[in-house]
Design a protein around this nucleic acid. Structure first.
Lengths: 339, 339
DNA sequence: ATGTATAATGTAAACGCTTTCAGAAAGCGT
DNA sequence: ACGCTTTCTGAAAGCGTTTACATTATACAT
């Protein structure tokens, strides 16, 4: 070993191969044709020195990070891994790196963890970013794609999301038409969560379409969280509010509903039909198997990445991609044979 | 607006505040005391210009990325989000960024996505990195922490993992002692998966301790995947191999076992007791509720990060952190009241 | 006042690449 | 043989920070 123990740089490679650093850079990036033998010499030198180009230097010089950022509000729940899987796979497939940041627990830190300074573009999941930051980024023409969130007033940012309203309407209509339910509970997601708002709208439209009057006491908090849902149902029962079905907002929420109903000895679906939304993994395995809406979550992830990278390449993108949802009928609505 | 539309740099800030760029850097990083009024002027300029320091430049100059990398083999399954949640939270809490890479689907790409060039240290989950790469990184003194994997021969790399063997032994002993099972199946995880190997060892020791002869036909493929498990159980039934219990390797696997058993009209737990490992979210909700081992997965994530960052700071770390596991008894083993 | 230690700031040299520009070499038509 | 393209390669100027070192201002003891 020589004196220097520092990892090799491009100059070391250049010296070893007897070329200039420019040439090394060229074989590294394939930006210009290099005589095959020369290229081979360079490649050999890289191999021998085990040279790995420093990302920071490349980024600084080229002014592209080759990285996209994913911002979400929370990791956990059954929804998230599906989304991430799609994003990760597609990002990688298109030759980019992925930086993930979750804004869970409201970091008071004022440092922006993801933005122009470390990514080429951003994927933003539902209101995980303050509107002002969104506006700022959009104003400086920073590539953005929103997931499950329509852009704030006046900002023309592409969106990828799912047919929440249609899905919800299908689901609720099914409960009404096939199972003759009339007092159907809707459990809202977190405040401002757009998925939840659209689902609620679908719920309302289904009621309207079947001439069922809207009962405000049947719309309660679910928070897309098991515990909140559990508490809400318990409270309703305690308050003596009657209901014969629960549209739980999402699948995680449905778990809490199951627990609360079982605890109060109400039978699912005989006494109360229950449905979720998303069709996450466990939905088919709980008992009774959950009737829900299949949302192509992984595909939302993939498509978002595609849109973003199109944006990075200066290509045109459509403003809104709406993914179809699909009714998945199992046992919890009253269909099928349950024990 | 002036002529330049480029985002502001540190020089713009310096000019505006009437100081040198060094001073700006100092208030940015707090590396040296700056007269309060000066600092305030700088802060004002930063605010007005909406200046955000370029990460690449900082990294290049300071030679630290302030980022740690997480390499895993697969995203998805119920195990992963828990781990990620722990890693993400702790990384953020300690002021680092997180770069995630999954080696799923064996990328043939020879570019190293994570390494010395873009992170300060790496978290490596189970054999998601080739041994040679591990050796290379270790040789150049790159900070590494392994999760659920003991280091290859001779490499002194810290490890964070769980008490797989003890957990498995508890579980199998429970089946033997409390439920009098004798023909217990063990379903292996993916080849070379260390968790699986330790669990198998625990399984064997439990058998031995109770003088039950080992039956090779009872150890089958599970792959920590539902489908593989399903197929394996079907095949065993088809081949007429008798068994009265299945230790499924992990909880995902148990789902496949449930399906296969139900399909063949075998009752759980009456005909066959089933157990998992991990205690992921859905385990308590499937029917019958799954007896399993609770592994502190999220905490493994957090602890790994702590270890790694200790390493980054040049502090000493213990070579091995073993997290306790815990028996969670539900219905699928035969305990409790099941329908 | 003067000198000396100390605190605050500035200067300029890295950091390790990419990329523009220009020059050398090679090919080709005349 | 000559100029004109066309390839390929090298020199050098950034990219936007951090940081070692130098410099200036400030405080204090003498």
């Amino acid at each position: 070993m020589t004196l220097k123990s520092q990892p090799p740089t491009i100059s070391d490679v250049a010296r070893k191969a007897g070329v200039s650093i420019a040439t090394v850079s060229r074989v590294l990036n394939g930006t210009t044709v290099v005589i095959p033998e020369t290229a081979e010499r360079v490649r050999l030198a890289i191999e021998e020195l085990k040279f790995v180009p420093r990302t920071a230097a490349r980024t600084l010089a080229s002014r592209r990070t080759n990285t996209i950022g994913l911002i979400l509000s929370e990791i956990g729940g059954a929804f998230f891994p599906l989304l991430l899987k799609g994003v990760e796979a597609e990002t990688r497939a298109l030759g980019y790196e992925l930086l993930i940041h979750s804004t869970q627990g409201a970091h008071p830190s004022h440092r922006k963890p993801l933005g122009e300074h470390n990514t080429d573009g951003l994927l933003v999941f539902t209101s995980s970013l303050a509107v002002e930051e969104l506006e700022r980024l959009h104003k400086i023409n920073f590539p953005l794609v929103l997931m499950h969130q329509t852009p704030p007033e006046g900002l023309n940012i592409p969106v990828v999301t799912i047919e929440n309203k249609d899905g919800a309407e299908m689901l609720v209509s099914h409960l009404i038409e096939q199972h003759n339910r009339r007092r159907i509970v809707y459990m809202r997601g977190p405040d401002g969560h757009e998925d939840s708002q659209w689902r609620e709208r679908g719920y309302l439209e289904a009621l309207q379409k079947h001439n069922i009057p809207f009962a405000p006491e049947l719309v309660v908090r679910g928070g897309f969280e098991e515990e909140i849902a559990f508490a809400s149902i318990q409270k309703m029962i305690q308050d003596g509010i009657e209901f014969d079905a629960v549209f739980a907002g999402d699948d995680d929420t449905a778990i809490g509903v199951y627990r609360a109903l079982k605890l109060s000895k109400r039978l699912i679906p005989d006494d109360v039909a229950v449905t979720g939304f998303d069709d996450v993994q466990f939905s088919r395995y709980i008992s009774p198997a959950l009737t829900t809406i299949r949302a192509p979550i992984e595909e939302v992830g993939r498509e978002s990445v595609r849109q973003l990278i199109r944006l990075l390449n200066g290509e045109q993108v459509q403003g809104l991609v709406l993914m179809r949802t699909e009714l998945v009928i199992r046992e919890s609505c009253g269909c099928g044979n349950h024990p």
